[in-house]
Design a protein around this nucleic acid. Structure first.
Lengths: 203, 203, 203, 203
DNA sequence: CATGAATGAGCGTTCATTCAT
DNA sequence: GATGAATGAACGCTCATTCAT
């Protein structure tokens, strides 16, 4: 188990790199093994199949995203503050793991039927965090009540995700702070109930 | 030529269906042909390669999206009204062509390096429409000046796209009107300069 | 029949060009048709199959070679003179129809089992001309009797053919006269009985 | 590596057989694999492509031919003797590797433009051996000076090659000794300067 | 456990041939 | 007869997976 753990980390990094560069289908187990510095057979000692390797990547990645986001969200007390923290954490995560996030959008968010239940659970797991915040905010009267929770939550996720990918993957130059402020301004103003305490965005 | 035109439509529909169900890599020319009711060779009489078929799909689709959006945008006079129309048109397009839109997100927005210039041009072409509206609105003082144009434009696209896909592809039941209102409320409030004429969203 | 004749000539030229540039297998009926300025279907109205087209090419070509060679051979009286004329005629034919001759060596002489009886008959038909001259020369005492007729005849053909191809196809510059003299000198001296009347090679 | 070496021999034999029976284009990797007793994929573990397999065959074959010829040529002292040895070695090589030699004539000597530089180098490499002997013989005064070296060298190669193929591939019965004597008599007499020491052909 | 050679199903693409117009 | 769109068998090549060493 300890050995498995020791082996899995280099595989994880190599796999993320290969899968995100080539996409699931064009990535080859051969290349993952080569980049991880091991033999192909060894890959199969750690993961039963290419699909399992891929799914474990996604799982691990969403867990990291969730954990980073939850940590930041917990540091704020009020709902708008928590949503602001969530936007910042997601953007920061996308910047740090841009390769991984390309995967997320293209293979997981892009094609519904392809990855079935397992991925579906992960996907809706992250969305649930946003939904919970919005619902609680609506109950407290600080988030507009006429927003449909599902639509608002996925819109927030999509806005941050696509803006992030566009900047971090497609543009060679970008001003991180400026993007962050824009997303906060755009989404928080849109979410927040008019007249509700106008806590100025942090920083 | 006439024959070519007549033949290409069924192929287009079949190809969109197959590519969006399976993604580019797992889609097979065999299946596209079978679903279009023609032989594999006939496919190659109309498109030189799988990649060309795919790219022509993307091109055709983005053209339809652009044209639908431009038409609706032109019907409104003021910038906020135009942005509202754009949101509506994009959402409506995603509802009507949900299969095609899965493709859009997963293969085009998802993986930057994979489809190179040709797709890149199409992609940035649509984003440009949104950017132009935002810039003009900022000049007129009806859109917040502290929004970075690139980030705001991609965020708007991403918000509508991901919310739409979530509803139309992943959820079996959804209330279209409710989603539309939520997106308009969320994004227009976020974009609009405080105090600027509060034209109530149409409808 | 007249129409067939009128159509077949352009097809013949186009087919020789395509087959000799690409070889039998990589040549396509499409390209033959395009170069002949007709539709693919028309090709099939004139020749039942690709193979038949190819064989008719070979047949026509060997007939032209045979007829050119027989004409020149008939103009000389003595056997050595006739052999000298044959060498000259074959070399001249290879220079004029170099494309066609590439075909001859590669597809006909190269692979025995491939073209079966039909080609075999043509092939041995031309060799027979040489064999007959050698045999008659041996009977007259002007050609060495210790030469095996088969080997000598094919050697003469091969020497002229390979030297011709090498010069006309592979080399960009060559002196035709010099090659002709070399082949005559080499082969005639080798064939001729020592001491037999040393008719100086013509020219 | 050891495994590779061990594997390549059966593949080589199978490939020569298939390529020479069918020619490059009609030969299939499937059949080569089947005859070598391995799976198609294994073929591709040893050779990157059909073309590479083919070229490595040609290379290996010409190397064997060159080495056999050089060995025999080295055993004689005088130029005519060396040429005699060359003729014998080439004929013997053609008899032993008749399948391979069909390939040589049809695909390599037959079509100039098809196999480009790589084969061209091999081709001219062997011809060079003959040319060197002729040139040296001309300098020594034992080979006729009025023979153009290029034409004479290719003629010698072609004479032996075509006579050999004709006997070994097309004829079921042949007398090897008789063919050898005929070629030596024909070509050596043709090459040798009149009056130069008439070393009777060995045997 | 690690290795990497062997496997073979699967797919993109080509092209000779047919046949409705 | 002429046309060229339609057909589908065939082939080169890839790569996930297995397994003997």
């Amino acid at each position: 188990m300890m050995r498995t753990r020791r082996k899995r980390l280099p595989i994880f990094d190599a796999a993320v790199a290969v899968f995100s560069e080539k996409g699931f289908a064009r990535a080859t187990m051969e290349e993952v093994a080569r980049r991880a510095g091991i033999a192909k057979g060894t890959l199969y000692n750690n993961y039963r199949s290419k699909k399992e390797l891929f799914l474990s990547l996604i799982e691990e990645g969403i867990e990291r995203l969730e954990s980073a986001v939850r940590r930041e969200v917990a540091r704020r007390e009020d709902i708008p503050g928590k949503l602001e923290a969530l936007i910042g954490a997601q953007l920061s995560f996308f910047e740090e793991y841009r390769d991984y996030c390309k995967l997320l959008l293209s293979e997981v968010w892009g094609l519904g039927t392809r990855w079935e239940e397992q991925v579906e659970r992960l996907r809706s797991g992250y969305i649930r965090i946003i939904k919970d915040l919005i619902e609680k905010g609506q109950a407290e009267g600080v988030i507009r009540k006429n927003l449909e929770v599902d639509a608002a939550a996925t819109a927030v996720f999509g806005a941050v995700a696509v803006a992030a990918l566009n900047a971090f993957v497609f543009e060679t130059r970008y001003r991180y702070e400026s993007i962050l402020q824009t997303l906060k301004e755009l989404l928080l103003t849109g979410l927040r109930e008019r007249g509700a305490g106008v806590a100025a965005p942090e920083r």
